[in-house]
Amino acid sequence: MENDDINLVVNATNTNAVTGGNVLDEGRVGTNGLQTKGIHVWFGKHHVLEDISLDFPANSVTGLIGPSGCGKSTFLRVLNRMHEFIPGAAMAGEVFLDGEEIYGPKVDVTAMRLKVGMVFQKPNPFPSMTIAENVLAGLKLANIKVQDKDSLLEECLTRAGLWKEVKDRLKLSGSSLSGGQQQRLCIARALAVKPKVLLMDEPCSALDPASTLKVEETIVQLSADMTIVVVTHNMQQAARVSDFCAFFLSDGGPGQVVEADRTAVIFSSPSDQRTADYVQGRFG
């Protein structure tokens, strides 16, 4: 773990911190966790992300922060190849998951997505399924046979912090829950296929403060044995849940990583003035 931590510390000798290219240590590529190397994304002619190289150490929480429209959500979708559904999308660079390049020609996309779970901005349980069916939907989709469905169900719902609230109404429709409960149901659904990485796209932006707190607790607990990447607009949330932070910014051109470091460093002594301005709420 100590080694992993060092890799995210900005190399002070590199003066060109703007591209963020120094954040990823080349030596780390291909080891545990998730690394991106020189990621660019285009939508048609529009260049939306430029040269993002980041390291997400295993069993850590990384917050992606920055103003709207700087490409954080797009970057998140690059990590599980969900952006390629958008017509006109193109990219460059590499993403390594546990040593395997996920854009390689031999990669089975659906099998890769099983290892990378995702939670969306708006809770989106399948309305045609019950709560229990929702949790186990991923297994059904991937045709994975499980010996003991009930215990898996309980385990996932417990880890998502929802078990106590729904254990008596597992047969009800997923859409009968409140917004916060639905979002935790979606987390449980993502957990059921035992992913190594969990991507969360502003998971609390549609929730009330109490539900937000519960989801945040869940994130912290999950990070004990998962790599979590969470996009957030909420500075306090980033400070509360993340171990590392990457600050994205677009000056009208493609989005770039201005600075990536331990969360404490980003919030207390960032090396870039724009980061300081942003985390103190002076813009964005």
Binding site: F85, M118, N124, V193
Partner: peptide
């Protein structure tokens, strides 16, 4: 709903 279709893909669905 596109978000539910995305969810199914993100769960490793074909």
């Amino acid at each position: 709903p596109q978000d539910q279709i995305s969810a199914a893909y993100a769960l490793g669905g074909s």
